[in-house]
């Protein structure tokens, strides 16, 4: 068994003439909390959809848990949990039924699925809505149910496509905490977001995507440090700030600023 949950090499995707992804390569270690960051239309969703086999890549190779999506899509899917960007909960069913019916798609037996569903409803604090219709749930509840549903098969990896989009701060924080707990329990997490503050708080390793290309990758710490060295050094030389002072006074570039600089540069070059 290799150390990587997912490895992607030279992944390229064309839609007719439009190049959605251009030669993307990255690796995700088992147990990692890995992020894909980028503005809307950067190609985040395309990468995720390729990984869960609903978009076919134009070129490149993919390895997920030692399996290939081309030959072993079924096996891979049985070990993935997917939280799509578009909420596709089953509105004709109750909260509990959503989990039970979903577990049937994985071939989980009835007794086991009841146990897991109850456990997940507790974990996400939605047990009191167990018999409510999905259509009557608020956005925060729906999103939690969507994540709970993705965990019904006890996956090795969960893939989340902008799971906190449009949520108020309280629900966002709630979801962050749950994801951290899940990651701690050993589940590899791959998540996309265009919220930079969220990325800084959650991700251990990231790729930054712009117009279908990776513009920056590495660990969150190294990215923040490297791109702030100049800033910190500059601060100590010119204005007599010490490094700690620079941190304390928040003269540091945030991930958002780093990213905006890169994107501006790139877009400037290509124009």
């Amino acid at each position: 068994m290799n150390d990587y949950a997912i490895s992607v090499e030279n992944l390229t995707k064309f839609y007719n003439d439009f190049s959605a992804l251009n030669n993307i390569s990255f690796k995700i270690k088992r147990g990692d909390f890995f992020g894909i960051i980028g503005p809307n239309g950067a190609g985040k969703t395309t990468i995720l959809k390729i990984l869960y086999s609903v978009v076919i890549p134009s070129a490149g190779s993919i390895d997920i848990l030692g399996l290939s999506p081309v030959n072993d899509a079924k096996k891979i899917k049985s070990r993935l949990g997917v939280v799509p960007q578009d909420d596709n909960l089953d509105e004709d069913l109750s909260v509990f039924e959503n989990l039970i019916i979903y577990s049937m798609y994985f071939g989980i037996n009835k007794k086991e699925s009841f146990r897991r569903a109850s456990e997940l409803l507790d974990f996400f604090s939605i047990a009191e809505k167990k018999n409510s219709k999905v259509i009557n749930l608020s956005g925060g509840y729906r999103r939690r149910l969507l994540i709970a549903r993705a965990l019904i098969n006890s996956p090795d990896i969960i893939i989340l496509d902008e799971p906190t989009i449009g949520l108020d701060p309280e629900y966002r924080l709630n979801i962050w905490n749950k994801l951290k707990l899940l990651n701690k329990s050993g589940i590899t997490i791959l998540m996309s977001t265009h919220y930079m503050d969220e990325a800084e708080k959650l991700f251990r390793n990231v790729i930054l995507l712009n117009r279908g290309e990776i513009v920056l990758n590495g660990s969150m710490d190294s990215i923040l440090n490297k791109n702030n060295n100049e800033n910190i050094d500059g601060a100590s030389d010119n204005t007599a700030y010490k490094k700690e002072d620079a941190y304390n006074n928040k003269r540091l570039k945030s991930l958002e600023e780093i990213f905006m600089d890169i994107v501006k540069n790139e877009n400037f070059k290509s124009n």
């Binding site: 869960y52 609903v54 899917k77 049985s78 799509p84 089953d90 979903y102 798609y105 071939g107």
Partner: peptide, 9 residues
């Protein structure tokens, strides 16, 4: 779409 990300083909 929801079913398609499960092992159901």
């Amino acid at each position: 779409d929801a079913i398609l990300v499960t092992p159901v083909s």
